[in-house]
Nucleic acid binder design. Structure first.
Lengths: 198, 198
DNA sequence: CCTACCGATCGGTAGG
DNA sequence: CCTACCGATCGGTAGG
């Protein structure tokens, strides 16, 4: 619990700033959000933000880094877990949708705003995103090897088709809809798995 | 040929401005692009842009409107064309990928930057996007009715899964890859159709 | 965390 | 399409 460098639920002022920034960056984009927008929403004067954060970009980095971490933490263990590749892929798809639904704005930052990180920080984010993609590549690869999945598919196109469908969910998923995130995830897993199974 | 209000290949200065803005809005986002960026890239002074366009937002509107129009023009006739619903859906998927690949930056503007249209123009874009989505909904609906596609799918989730996968393509498609847009589209259609066929 | 402020940049315009 | 410029807003800082 104690000191969590990237947490955004810490309760303190830095946590409040990160939460507000996460929502605004997700809705309006990084470049479409001013430090004054953030300060107003959190109840501070613009200059006071800098008692808690280093810069606008450091704020983005924290949000992106924490966000990718949540996807990796939820999906990584499932990729390496038990079950056939198809069973694991199903769990990964459902978990991914659940992480998105837990906070669509944060997901949008993870999916789209990382581009605005500077030269120093961008490669780190790109690399962790690639790490995440490789979880899916590995599982599909295993499914093809075991004969559980079709061998006439293009691995990369297949994984990007799956991740594309998943990463589009924050555009339309509503917490007020009749189906919860888990159910939506199951529907998507049904379709996407049928497309790939031998 | 004569007067094309929304054309961006007109050759004139307005066409050059639209082309440059399209690429910059696609890469850096609408709010991440300044009129000075556009002016520099097109070889004008910032103020001179306004001899050719009304405002930054009018420029965005032209690009978005023209962009959606290209998707509607390519896919609409296929949705209403001949063949079974599955055959038509395959053609629509391939055509969509081809429109994306023809100009990924423009596609990114259509997919993400329309949010920055003001209150007057936003509903128009939202409506045309909905029109486009309904092309896919109708065809899948027809496929379910005819028994060609599974009846245990959730129509909306299914169409959004398909469109999500398709709308993610500008994130990764490369004109320098070994597969062309048509081949990528066929691969995606294979997977997505298998997921939905009865 | 506020006061007070910095230089830079923003979208856009008047007049030619 | 340039010259010259407008008021507003930007990210960020010194000093308390």
């Amino acid at each position: 619990m104690a000191i969590a460098p990237n947490a955004d639920q810490e309760g303190g002022p830095r946590g409040a700033i990160m939460n507000v920034a996460m929502h605004l960056f997700g809705k309006q984009g990084f470049t479409g959000t001013s430090m004054r927008d953030i300060a107003n929403a959190v109840g501070l004067l613009p200059g006071s933000l800098y008692a808690h954060i280093q810069s606008k970009e450091a704020l983005l980095l924290s949000i992106v880094s924490d966000g990718i971490g949540r996807f990796l933490a939820a999906v990584g263990p499932l990729a390496a877990g038990s079950g056939t590749p198809a069973e694991r892929l199903r769990k990964m798809i459902v978990a991914h949708v659940e992480v998105v639904a837990d906070n669509p704005e944060r997901s949008q930052v993870v999916f789209h705003q990382w581009r605005f990180l500077g030269e120093g920080n961008l490669p780190v984010a790109v690399d962790r995103r690639r790490q995440y993609e490789s979880l899916f590549i590995t599982v599909v690869e295993q499914g093809v090897s075991s004969g559980e999945m079709r061998s006439d598919i293009d691995l990369r196109i297949e994984v990007r088709t799956i991740l594309g469908a998943l990463n589009w969910t924050p555009e339309w998923f509503s917490p007020n809809g009749k189906l919860g995130a888990g159910e939506v995830g199951e529907h998507m897993a049904n379709t996407l798995l049928r497309g790939i199974l031998a």
